[in-house]
Design a protein around this nucleic acid. Structure first.
Lengths: 109, 109
DNA sequence: TTCAGTTGGTATACGATGTATATGAAATGC
DNA sequence: GCATTTCATATACATCGTATACCAACTGAA
């Protein structure tokens, strides 16, 4: 990995949410996924801003879906990982895991 | 966790390095620990800047050690986690682990 | 048939975080 | 003493994270 393109913490979170959601990833579900797994109640604007930045870096791509026959069911913007995004995510997960490995929680603080 | 005090990605990395290094954590070794585990060649200035911010948030504390009898062996500034820092780190590791759990790498990209 | 109510997205601004560059200070060894 | 080595600090700027506010599209019922 060339230096300088490490993922930010929130970018990593959003990419992980995409990975879990598969073909049902759009603003609202992404936010829910993060909240459900981490307990962190993120702002929806933060999610979209980050998705835009990820797309600008070619780590994600998006398409507009069809409206659904539900009250307020307007068309969604679906997001997915690109191959490059999947690679960056794997790399970044590997990095954090190797930092976590072997920690002795008992001796901290 | 009260909203707003989530750790940044690099802050988390630095705290993890502290956790591994125990009583031998100072600028140079912290940098080495991160590089050795992640392959990421971080800038020393970035490390100190982050340590200062962590200390401002009471997640770490520091003290100045004794000079050593080595060429260039000037006094080091040692860093360690506070109890609060250890808690924040555990919390943040738990969050990322629950985001990683159950991922199916094969279906990405 | 229009408008309240609901879902979902966009714009933008700003503070926090991440990073590079440059400089400073204290020690040793010759 | 002065070059050399280790370690720390200062500063400036780019990127990321977050809040606030607003806009758009659709349904259902008056």
């Amino acid at each position: 990995m060339p230096k300088g393109d490490a993922l930010g913490g929130f970018e990593q979170l959003v990419l992980l949410a995409l990975a879990h959601l598969g073909d049902n990833a759009y603003g609202v579900t992404i936010r829910q996924e993060i909240a459900a797994r981490t307990g962190r109640d993120v702002n929806i604007g933060a999610v979209y801003a980050t998705l835009d930045r990820l797309e600008a870096k070619s780590l994600t791509r998006s398409r507009t879906g069809e409206p659904t026959a539900l009250r307020g069911g307007r068309a969604k913007r679906y997001f997915e990982l690109t191959a490059e995004g999947a690679r960056a995510l794997e790399e970044s997960v590997r990095a954090i895991e190797s930092m976590i490995r072997g920690l002795n929680w008992g001796e901290l603080g």
